[in-house]
Design a protein around this nucleic acid. Structure first.
Lengths: 357, 357
DNA sequence: TGTTGAAATGGTAGCGTTAACGCAGATGAG
DNA sequence: CTCATCTGCGTTAACGCTACCATTTCAACA
């Protein structure tokens, strides 16, 4: 370098007092900026000793890569559109926290967009493209909207369905085993001695609803209980629908001694319905929910339910999407299944005496 | 540099098939890239005709600014740390949607971080700095954490408190008039003929709690009701605490005929407590909540409450923060007050007959 | 008439990072 | 001992945009 920067004030000297850059780290570690970049991106072709030197320098300066520069230089940029219609807000908040966290960690940008189910799917696709979205994240109930999936697929975007009962060949999917969870919960009720167990199903247009119903039926069958179809009702995951179904079930000639609701909101409604009819929960009626959202602990008594790790599922889905966007080889739809767990609280109990008619 | 690039195939020709750039727009509009930039950033010093030409070109090409390049070139970059401890998830989800939207619109990056109230505030400040956060967004209850505010201020970061009862001179603040909202709600109850109105206060460490209590007291006073301090209880905004307070109130020798709870979760608990004691809501007990979160409609009957426009408040707070980060002149703490509204539903009613002891 | 200066526009040099390629030195094959 | 190959690292040129001047135009003013 013949030309020293001998004090002359270059015109564009607009470098503010921002954080250290690769160049600073490189100088300190006595390597080239490129090597620093390699270390930061964990390129395997860096000598161990060099890597250590660089890492030491990084730590010393408290260097943090500049995301803007990275995505500009890398040419790569990942915008994820998160579409939500109206899942329970408890679900959404957990979902948002998880996806936001992962997106930030992976240097992706998250665009949260509300989508009215009545709105035109074509217009949506156009909107996504105009926002330069690369991938779309679909929490329920949108994850089950076949038309929407097709539409987005036609626009050439990668997608991930979260908590769907029917993973599409067009998209990544992250699910729990809904059938097994519903089975486990129902089996718990039969284990407590219940033989007349009511069921409140979720919205029929959500594929997970059917899986939960199947789990319920299998548990009954395995307990040798002859399923009474009058005990099966169908709601739409809202509190209000849960209330209607629960009132109907409890008004039967031979009412159930336990009710399994397909989500916590409907289970909470069931508890409210029981109270409305003067029944004690769990003494006279056991109730189980599903999801373990905030609703589960915002009722009295608190609900026994199946925990769905919503935030983790969102994180996983974002990971799948970002990988797909950055690496075309990772584009083949993958289906990740995460574990659920039973959360035992106070809304269910051993069957004591049949309810006095 | 003596060595010309005499025809040799330039090495780095890595421009992918990405969207149009300022240069493309400039070419089409026959202006310089700089002018395009001015138009995009709505710089006033652009002739009307030029602006129109450029805008036409932009529309024609479907140009969208590259955020990465913008923040890199501008040197400006705004990272907002959103700290949340454990507000109700219904509140959080609305808050997240609003802040995310605004942050994206203004080209800021949102980092959502959970903060345990027991955790060290110093460690947090260090963490924020190491994440290169420029501003901090504080929803309740963190917006009332004085130590936290001081700590963040000491780290030299801009802050915004949302829904605090005591705007700090160190931070921006976005609030509603809690006192007036509580007054309005309580006045509605007195208007319905109630004279024994119970009160369930929020967590004492949240300044809004006191304001709501004041509103309640003022309404009683103006209705000529002699406040009975036994009717005032203190919860902590959780369902469980609401349950405890409600049970205590309803077990008084002379129980109230209406209860005003300082948030919807506690109001929902009050409804549950009433049902538990065999009271009909609203016939035997009127209940009012506060916030209009999802909890308000996830009980039966649905709650009359005061609506706090959480998403709007989050948006406004983000706007204040981003402005402050980009423009030091806008750094002087500002206090924005947004309007609340009363949402009348089914949980309150005219006082009919005094409750049968 | 020349001067001033504000308004409107253009030219250029970066911002911090990485892709693509270059180039030594080490290793292995023939 | 030469040629091909691989390792490890450096050099250069983008990425798309905007800050910082410089320049032009044209009206107002001395």
């Amino acid at each position: 370098m013949t030309d020293q920067d001998n004090g002359r004030v270059k015109r564009g000297q607009r470098r503010g007092a921002r954080g250290p850059t690769v160049a600073d780290v490189a100088r300190l570690a006595q390597v080239s900026p490129m090597t620093v970049s390699r270390v930061v991106n964990s390129d395997p072709k860096v000598h161990e000793a060099t890597r250590a030197k660089v890492e030491k320098a990084i730590a010393e300066l408290g260097y943090v890569p500049n995301l803007a520069a990275r995505s500009l230089a890398g040419g790569r940029q990942c915008r994820i559109g998160l579409l939500h219609s109206n899942p329970s807000s408890a679900y959404l908040s957990e979902f948002l926290v998880g996806s936001n966290e992962q997106a930030n960690a992976m240097g992706a940008q998250l665009l949260v967009e509300h989508f009215e189910e009545e709105a035109s799917r074509e217009a949506l696709a156009a909107k996504l493209l105009s926002h330069r979205v690369d991938a779309v994240l679909l929490p329920p109930p949108l994850s089950d909207d076949g038309l929407l999936l097709e539409c987005i697929n036609r626009a050439g975007l990668v997608m991930a369905q979260v908590a769907t009962g029917a993973p599409s060949p067009l998209a990544h999917a992250v699910t729990i085993d809904d059938e097994a969870a519903a089975y486990a919960l129902t089996a718990r009720l039969t284990g407590l001695g219940h033989r007349r167990i009511g069921f409140i199903g979720g919205a029929p247009n959500q594929t997970a609803s059917a899986l939960r119903r199947n789990g319920y039926r299998r548990a009954l069958a395995e307990a040798g209980i002859d399923g009474d179809r009058r005990l099966e009702t169908t709601g739409d995951f809202t509190f209000r629908s849960g209330m209607d179904c629960a009132l109907a079930l409890l008004s039967l000639d031979e009412p159930p001694t336990a009710i399994f609701a397909s989500n916590d909101d409907m289970a909470a409604a069931t508890v409210a319905a029981a109270h409305r009819m003067g029944l004690d929960v769990p003494r006279q009626l056991s109730v189980c929910g599903f999801d373990d959202t905030a609703s589960a602990t915002n009722v009295w008594p608190e609900l026994t339910t199946a925990r769905q790790p919503v935030a983790d599922m969102a994180r996983e889905a974002v990971r799948l999407l970002v990988d797909s966007v950055f690496d075309p080889k990772a584009r083949a739809p993958r289906h990740v299944r995460v574990d659920f767990s039973l959360v035992l609280r106070a809304s269910d109990a051993t069957l004591t005496a049949p309810r006095a008619g």
